[in-house]
Amino acid sequence: MFDFCADPSVLDRLTWLSCYLTTGKHMAIYWSVGTVLLLLAVTAPTALAFGFGGAVLARSRVAPLRWLGKGYIAIVRGVPDIAFFLFFVIALDQLFEWVRHEVKCPEWENSVWQGNDFIVCQAAKLPLSSAPQWVHEGYGFVLAVITFSIVFGAFAGNVLFGAMRAVPRAQLETAEAYGMSRGQTFRRVLVPQMWVYALPGLSNLWMVLIKATPLLFLLGVEDIVYWARELGGTKTPQFTAYPHGDWRVWYFLALLVFYLGMTKLSEWALTRLQDRLSHGQATASGERLRRDEVTA
């Protein structure tokens, strides 16, 4: 990276470290932090949308829809989440390939299940074997995002369902008294008011989502855990000009600190958001804010 890095043997420790931490491989780990942040940025709204859908279904007046929504919300309790992550990644992949298989190769006679193999025709493979590298990586990432969204959507659905029920009944009755239809009441009264009640649960969920991002590694994405293992592993003089012992413990210490920092930052931001949303609300925290302002 730096010009003085051309001959590492003459450098003293700190400058040497600055060179070491800016090698091409290390740039990959910094980029993978970007992957994690991208996952958070994409998953959070998607999961919220899934959760909203789940909560609306769970409140539906049509019984089968209600069962669907409640089942979706309930199923993630009782079963470890990692099992869901591992399950959905394979299941979604097979689902996509099977759909493409049915569309692209209708003449195919055999079943896609043959013994212990799952076989689709060449044209239906996802991603195509001829596709460039970035398509393969992108596909893995998209699968991970959908998986995260499904699992966290269920948690968000639980929170939003509770929040919708927490909106005071009198508010909805007033809306009905004004002659609003069910849909209008939902859009104009229920949804705008539920966020204050949902925020503590959603804040918690955000923290949990941050802490779930290392699971990307299990889904086969080259994320920070992957690179920490790669870069920290023992390097022998045979394969690299910069041999070192097993440094993985230091890399994981760095990851630990990174996640603690993320948690601290989120805590700070969410407290501020909570204060802003509570401002002027007829809730306990809103009342506390008002009193603080009066005394200040």
Binding site: K211, L215, D246, V249
Partner: peptide, 22 residues
Amino acid sequence: IFIFRGSPLFIQFFFAYFAFLS
């Protein structure tokens, strides 16, 4: 409490394993 609640268990496992290895 902050350290163990603020970081992912997954990373804690990795860190502990490699620390014990060293």
